[in-house]
Design a protein around this nucleic acid. Structure first.
Length: 479
RNA sequence: CGAGGUGUAGCGCAGUUUGGUAGCGCGCUUCGUUCGGGACGAAGAAGUCGCAGGUUCGAAUCCUGUCACCUCGACCA
């Protein structure tokens, strides 16, 4: 037992050191390994399986909304990147450059894509000629590179996997509709698949994407009250179109510039998953993306009939759920701990006593609740439980978010909350970037998260400067 | 890029102050006993002490340089 204790203590407690706890989970659940390239990580099979499940779910949603997958080059010539001024200024500081090919110095250096707006625009300028060519609804699954100063597995790495949608539309209205539609796709995905609630809304001028007219964002709150930008959807208007000379002949037989959007989510969502749901015993995965949904652990597997029964159950369940039968010769206790570490939503124990009673033991990862259930209609019992687990996980995360969301109407109140209570602060804002800067300085890092779609009227004046308020803003620290 | 920290067996660490030729726990291999919350015994395998110089009869240990990683800031998905 002393040894068990030690193994369990190998995960730093979440309440003691959140950052260390996160790193422990990521390593011990075998999601990643550090690589020997600065800021890059090896995504191990278990971590990659989570990403694959996320991909499959999102890809389905993209296709249901009419999008097609494409693949762009990973290199962007410098001249192409420079066509949009704000865009290049935003990304230049974190570009990786290729200057040599083989032994030849390149005439023009190539940027390893940090994002692909410019490549899509270049391509769109070739293929868009008439309004009949619109809309173009493309998505790309790939990796991008941003030379970050500080990196953490999943949350910020030099190279990361993501999807980036890039669309072109005949009218501004249509593009705006697309921007909001994809934000909704993200919000639904977070809720229905990741069991993560989030605040959604518009970024301020200061926080919006380089080159965008409007940036919408989904901002889930982590267990410790810190926000994570979980996905963005940008409306570009016709800014890029003009710079890249993308034109089409309209219904009026005149030349027009198409209106553009882009939207993206990344492997960072795995980081969100960890920081929202997991606990001191390891990962807790929502059933929809868990690589293993049910793990079958035979108990006293040397006793006659146990392994056979476990095998029968596996065969019965394997077509309906992602099931693993662990018949290795590790002790049951070891397996219990191991699959808790890996966040498997349901553990199914089957031993001699169960077989006698035509039952098995189901243990929920999220609550540790132990249920003795009949082997009759087991698939239905499990299906119901998985749904329940998902809903309970969502509701717990929602409760945490609500409990850690505060309201401030005076600046003293705001500073007090920022200093003493982790979480979001709802407060009125005048619309000036100066106030955002001041707040960030006065609070050590509190920034505007977003202007939510559903604003509340908390007071008439800006919490910072006292001028007339324009918006209610969610404020908070972020990863 | 600023501040701090760490590099010794696959993983976690001790040894460095005071130089003497490397050790512990976990894991791994084999055999046996175990099996309802990280089992036990026996026998094994495994380390150019991050890298490069230097001092010394002798360096994991002292000196110089360098690289990588981690944490916290600034920057960002």
């Amino acid at each position: 037992m002393a040894d068990n204790k030690k193994m369990v203590e190998a995960i730093t407690s979440r309440d003691v050191d959140f950052a260390q706890w996160y790193t422990d989970i990521v390593k011990k659940a075998e999601l990643v390994d550090y690589s020997n390239v600065k800021g890059c990580m090896v995504i191990r099979p278990y971590g990659y399986a989570i990403w694959e499940n996320m991909q499959a779910d999102m890809d389905r949603r993209f296709k249901e909304t009419g999008h097609e997958n494409v693949y762009m080059p990973m290199f962007i010539p410098e001249s192409l990147l420079q066509k949009e001024k704000d865009h290049v200024e935003g990304f230049a500081p974190e570009c990786a450059w290729v200057t040599v090919g083989g032994s030849e110095k390149l005439a023009e250096r190539l940027c390893v894509r940090p994002t692909s707006e410019t490549l899509f625009c270049e391509h769109y300028s070739h293929i868009i000629n008439t309004y009949r060519d619109l809309p173009k609804l493309y998505n790309q699954w790939c990796s991008v590179v941003r030379w970050e100063k500080t990196t953490r597995p999943f949350l910020r790495t030099s190279e990361f996997l993501w999807q980036e949608g890039h669309t072109m539309h005949e009218t501004a209205e249509e593009a705006m509709e697309e921007t909001l539609k994809m934000l909704k796709v993200y919000t639904d995905f977070y809720k229905e698949t990741l069991a993560i609630p989030a605040v959604v809304g518009k970024k301020t001028e200061k926080e919006k994407f380089a080159g965008a007219e409007i940036t919408y964002t989904i901002e889930p709150m982590m267990h410790n009250g810190v926000a994570l930008q979980g996905g963005t959807s940008h409306y570009f208007g016709d800014g890029f179109s003009k710079n890249f000379d993308i034109t089409f002949t309209g219904r009026d037989n005149k030349l027009h510039y198409p209106h553009q959007t882009s939207w993206g989510t990344s492997t960072r969502m795995i980081g969100a998953l960890i920081m929202v749901h997991s606990d001191d015993d390891g990962l807790v995965l929502p059933p929809k993306i868990a690589p293993i949904q049910v793990v079958i652990v035979p108990v006293a597997s040397h006793k006659e009939g146990v392994l056979e029964k476990a095998g029968e159950l596996y065969n019965e369940l394997k077509d309906k759920f992602r099931v693993k039968l662990d018949d290795s010769d590790q002790s049951p206790g070891w397996k219990f701990a191991q699959y808790e570490m890996k966040g498997v939503p349901l553990r199914l124990e089957i031993g001699p006593k169960d077989i006698e009673k035509n039952q098995c033991v189901l243990v929920r990862r999220d609550t540790r609740e132990k249920l003795f259930v009949s082997l009759d209609n087991l698939d239905q019992t499990i299906e119901k439980l998985l749904v329940e687990i998902h809903d309970d996980m969502y509701n717990r995360a929602l409760k945490n978010t609500e409990e850690k969301t505060h309201t401030a109407t005076t600046y003293d109140e705001f500073l007090d909350i920022a200093k003493n209570k982790p979480g979001f602060i709802k407060a009125m804002w005048c619309g000036d970037t100066e106030c955002e800067n001041k707040i960030k300085e006065d609070t050590v890092g509190v920034k505007s998260r977003c202007i939510p779609f559903e604003e509340e009227h908390l007071s008439d004046t800006c919490v910072c400067c006292g001028k007339k308020a324009k918006h209610m803003v969610y404020w908070g620290k972020q990863y």
